[in-house]
């Protein structure tokens, strides 16, 4: 595929070739314009936002006047939701991928799982949010409250339900990328391991998973970056605009108190914060630098994550290529 013939055949005395080159040039120009627009969009955010970012902005607590203070709780809330989301989604996603790639034969069940993963990936995020609100908060949360007699502790929007909903949202991403990573491990590795007398589980645990680690990490990072950028599903799942206190609970061990994320608390979130700043601000010119600063933080986080994922994938492909070449 790579060494494709790209040269143009020289044609003499033909007005066609001039028109042709013009058209090819047109494709070039339009493509470059699109890319330049993309660069301008990123450049604008960097240019306007970079001046606001300093330590106080990143860690400070928002003031009631939103042109002052910082976005510390929003960054913390984003991290808290993402960490719980990863805890919920990553094991299930990797185990599903192991089933698809290593265990399943081409049966009804495999086709059902494949089709479900594809369909789940296509469900709009707002519909998943709607489902999360109705199912996790009102059904599961209320049921837990009824059983444990905890009043209104779980039956309301909270971090745990936002994380669970985001976990449903990113599950297909993790499954698809992990399955690809597992599938790209050469068959001979499995044969060699089994030939040495290892069981199937030992083969997966000691041969396949370590080999596929960069590929699996790519999927996890992509899922993380996607969940951080999603705003629509969490809007009604416990996101608050202004919470001066971090959503923490303290694990009391009598001699020391360990702060942990309180999963039943409300939270602030970077993406939601941008939405509120952009739409509800009473004086847009005054708060503009603040808005750009918050946006730049979110953009930097997702760019960094996506870049890491791309580098991981690149390295993983190189490794697989080398392995295949040496066989």
């Amino acid at each position: 595929m790579e060494n494709r013939f790209k040269g143009n055949i020289k044609k003499e005395n033909s007005s066609n070739s001039i028109i042709d080159n013009l058209l090819i040039g047109g494709i070039r120009i339009i493509s470059f314009s699109v890319i330049i627009i993309f660069i301008l969009i990123l450049g604008k955010i960097f240019y306007e936002g970079i001046g606001v970012i300093n330590w106080n902005f990143l860690t400070g607590i928002p003031k009631s006047d939103i042109s002052k203070g910082g976005i510390g709780p929003a960054i913390f809330g984003t991290m808290a939701v993402s960490i719980i989301m990863l805890i919920l989604a990553v094991p299930v996603g990797i185990f599903s991928a192991i089933y698809i790639s290593e265990f399943a034969k081409d049966t009804f069940w495999l086709r059902l799982i494949r089709a479900s993963v594809n369909s789940l990936a296509g469900v709009p995020s707002i519909v998943i949010g709607l489902f999360g609100f109705g199912f996790f908060v009102l059904f599961i949360g209320k049921s837990i409250d009824n059983i444990l007699q905890t009043g209104m502790l779980f039956g309301q929007p909270a971090i745990i339900w936002a994380s669970a909903t985001l976990a449903v949202l990113v599950l297909p991403t993790i499954i698809v990328t992990t399955t690809e990573a597992l599938n790209s491990i050469p068959l001979t590795f499995r044969q060699a391991s089994l030939g040495l007398g290892a069981s199937k589980w030992q083969t997966i645990r000691y041969i396949i998973l370590p080999q596929a680690r960069p590929g699996i990490l790519t999927g996890v990072i992509l899922a993380l970056s996607r969940s951080i950028g999603e705003t629509a599903p969490i809007m009604f799942l416990g996101c608050a605009f202004f919470l001066p206190n971090l959503p923490l609970a303290y694990l009391d061990l009598s001699f020391v108190q360990i702060p942990i994320i309180n999963p039943a608390d409300q939270f602030m979130h970077l993406a939601y914060h941008i939405f509120i700043l952009a739409t509800q601000s009473s004086n847009p010119t005054l708060t503009a630098p603040f808005q750009y600063g918050t946006t730049l933080v979110l953009v930097l986080i997702t760019l960094l994550l996506n870049l890491t994922a791309i580098i991981f994938r690149f390295r993983f492909r190189k490794i697989i290529e080398v392995v295949n070449r040496n066989q």
Binding site: I45, A271, I274, V299
Partner: peptide
């Protein structure tokens, strides 16, 4: 372009 596909939509909305 791949990176751009991963940009949060709220950022585009804001811009």
């Amino acid at each position: 372009i791949e990176i751009f596909a991963g940009l949060p939509t709220v950022v585009i909305g804001f811009l």
